[in-house]
Design a protein around this nucleic acid. Sequence first.
DNA 1: TTGAAAGCGGTACCAC
DNA 2: GTGGTACCGCTTTCAA
Lengths: 327, 327
Amino acid sequence: MARSPTVYDVAQAAGVSIATVSFTFSRPSRVRPATREAVLAAARALGYVPSASARGLAVGRTKSFGLIFWDGSTPPPGPFDEVNAGLRHFPRWVHEVQYGIERAAWRHGYAIMVGDGDATDVDTTAVDIAGRVDGLVLLPRMLSPETLMRVAERIPVVSVTEGAADPHLNSITVDNRQGMTDLVRHLVEVHHIRSATFVGAPDTADYRARFAAFRDVLEQAALPALDDADRPDAYVCRTDADALDLLTELRGRGIRVPEDVIVTGFDGLAAGLISQPTLTSVRQPMYDLGVAAVDLLLNRIADPRSPAEHRRFPVELTVRHSCGCPA
Amino acid sequence: MARSPTVYDVAQAAGVSIATVSFTFSRPSRVRPATREAVLAAARALGYVPSASARGLAVGRTKSFGLIFWDGSTPPPGPFDEVNAGLRHFPRWVHEVQYGIERAAWRHGYAIMVGDGDATDVDTTAVDIAGRVDGLVLLPRMLSPETLMRVAERIPVVSVTEGAADPHLNSITVDNRQGMTDLVRHLVEVHHIRSATFVGAPDTADYRARFAAFRDVLEQAALPALDDADRPDAYVCRTDADALDLLTELRGRGIRVPEDVIVTGFDGLAAGLISQPTLTSVRQPMYDLGVAAVDLLLNRIADPRSPAEHRRFPVELTVRHSCGCPA
DNA sequence: TTGAAAGCGGTACCAC
DNA sequence: GTGGTACCGCTTTCAA
């Protein structure tokens, strides 16, 4: 790990100026073939690797987007594979969104810088990452409003699946209301439930929307929303993660799903495909959310004074066995 | 998106020099509380976001690791979710390794920069990413030897699951030989196969090791390794991806698995949990491979003159239904 | 405790 | 077509 060669070293070795070295890489046509060859040969011989920091500083762009990764799950201690049996920790919602972001960014020549949104001080992480990239994707429940504004003033920011409190911020959301409505109607009309309980704290915009839809459908059907004390006909969980946890708990208590009680999730995680029973849920188009996020970022970069965009994606009821439908 | 405030702006607003601003953030104890407050207030008021490019240039480190992502699958066109039904495209081997890398890196305060290894010119991508980070993780089958050496001369590099051709490069491998041996022995001893065919090109070190083990076990048992023309008792695939493709093809031809023929994979993808039939395979500890990769990188950074490390991980036979064992 | 100033490694404008 | 050079924004040594 000797000191890395720089443009200066390459220039000297090739007997040209650093400007010529720079041009050789940025606009090869502007430099005479013979000179170009000499520069490239010198670069190769020295093992020249351009410093992105220097370039970024000079041009003011980094050709990369940042992603503040938010997991929301306590990372498993111990051997991951064992703890993850049943796909409980991977892949989750974020991973699939991230994959969409990555592919979309790569297609446009951007790299992705992923920072830890589960760190104790997310705001610091966010500012740190923001300082390195040309645009930032935020996942739900992340930053303090002040940090958010601070970052958004510097680079384009898109918030995935959190209604934009501030209309100046780009956002991607999903149709939580429609998804939850479809789900609960299915339970009412097909499985004739007489009561239901909503499981999970409605503490983000997404979840509040889901809970509201849940409550509305029950009201329309004149059915009661029971609290945890009673055993309802159905537990409607705010996320798949909640639902999977509940399945485990119910099994421990000897309560059968779906025979004794119905359980449903929301998100469409892979784990719901292999759970016992398989999980009825509402599937979000996670990959596409990620792709759209990059799209908005690129739009803002192409035209910084364009207005903020807000896109809403449809979701899809996925009927499986935990609601009593055939597996 | 006005011009971003810099240390100069903050210094001016706070009535101090840029050195003091810098110290306020890097060594707060070195500056008098009153001064510190003034600087922080100014920074907050201006919405100061430090430029990582400038810092990186100044200190020569970026506190980030690079990952050249290699998928090996043709990215699905069209709506991803539909194409990915059955988890065929996500999550794959790389995704789980990546997750391990990310978590491990974050734990040590490093961000992860992910670049596209499926791009037409991987070498260029690699050099580009290498110029931005303090260490690089390479996934299988990636770079030309020249590029590899060039990059490795500049920053620590660890190659995941590719035997280190060059002993100077850190590497993580898995015990392909043992895994394949266990698998084929299972087929011979439990399912009494009389013949088998290896499916998939043995074009990397990993796969060559698997094929060698496959052949050796058959030889010891005095059994023939048939080529594709004949129908063997078992198709032993070099990867799960190959096996899943084969399952689809066989179903199309009306051939039943495992009744008519056995099919096995290698890797332990999630898709094998929900395939019809579920897939007998050999599971790699992907997450742990990622964690180990970061570990090696950190070791080299802590002591640049320490010798290259090579770690080999055990794998585990995962018996499911496609070999004829009970589902 | 604070400030002045010299880099860090590129880019790109302006001369020649 | 090529070279000289002034930045880009931050860190860090050295003096005050």
